[in-house]
Amino acid sequence: MLKYLLKRLVQMIVVLFTVSVIVFLVMSFTGDPVLMIVPPTATDAQIAEARTALGLDRPLWVQYGVFLQNLIRGDLGVSYIFKRPALTLIVERMPATLELVFFSVLLSLAVALPCGVYAGARPNSPFSRAVMGGSLLGISLPSFWVGILLIFYFAVEKGLLPSSGRGATAPLFGIPFAFLTWDGFRHIVLPAVTLALGTLAMLIRLIRAQIMEVMRQDFIRFARAKGVSWRSLFFSHALKNALVPVVTVFGMQIGSLIAFATVTETIFAWPGMGKLLVDSINTADRPVIVAYLMIVAAMFVLINFIVDIVYTLIDPRIDLR
């Protein structure tokens, strides 16, 4: 196990290093942050001065060396716009994104598990057909459109739920969370539903297909010959066997949701990491963009690691080596 952990750690470092090279290279070819910072009336001399102050006049490999050196010390640079450390900016906004993702994931699981299992158990029932049709819609509809539609109906027409912002927050372990207050919770509902839709639809289809596959296996028939009830057959015998591919996809989905909640956050003006990223791209705030991408890459690696651990909990045949 220790050997495995070490191996994963080395892998993680290699991945992050590679990501840092790519991100740094791509960023240095897109836009000129100096022009975004200096006032429109600045002279060439002032622009050159600003460039020197930011260290952007030096050769690219030197810039990268400095970046790497700082990275190892945990310093991801200072935002050109906010004049604050990029890491602090992102970490401040992370709870908002995480709670949004958490509720979307919870919602997708709560709906996808029972619906997927049932649709897989009775693949020809009207319910199963309805679920398949509905999930196709869920996969194909773009989230920005669904978000706008939800705002139009629930916020504008009915006035039931707020359409933007995070509402009031309450601290938990010193971190402010919106879901702890009624107002904040009401603010989460619409963005969480919007964000959940695609994942939910995909999970339903995957679980259904997996259950149908497992139900054909001999051990299911053997369990029936033992007199096992239908409920126990599906939830105790079939579901666990259907779960390994589901966990794989689910893990990647969580990563994507965290990284790409951007669109949903923008529509609902949710003050999370995604909104920060979009704002930073608009202002060519390089350190924030780079820091964001590094953190997202680290999260992906971490989630995949957790997924691997979960595999071994589900399937005793999987050996981590």
């Binding site: 051990f219 053997f222 369990a223 010959a225 033992k226 007199g227 066997n241 589900i314």
Partner: peptide, 24 residues
Amino acid sequence: RRIRGKEISMIFQDPMTSLNPLHS
């Protein structure tokens, strides 16, 4: 369901597939 296993039980052809791989 109450008769299966209790009154009449069954042994299958392939022991590699008739046991649930994820249950002890």
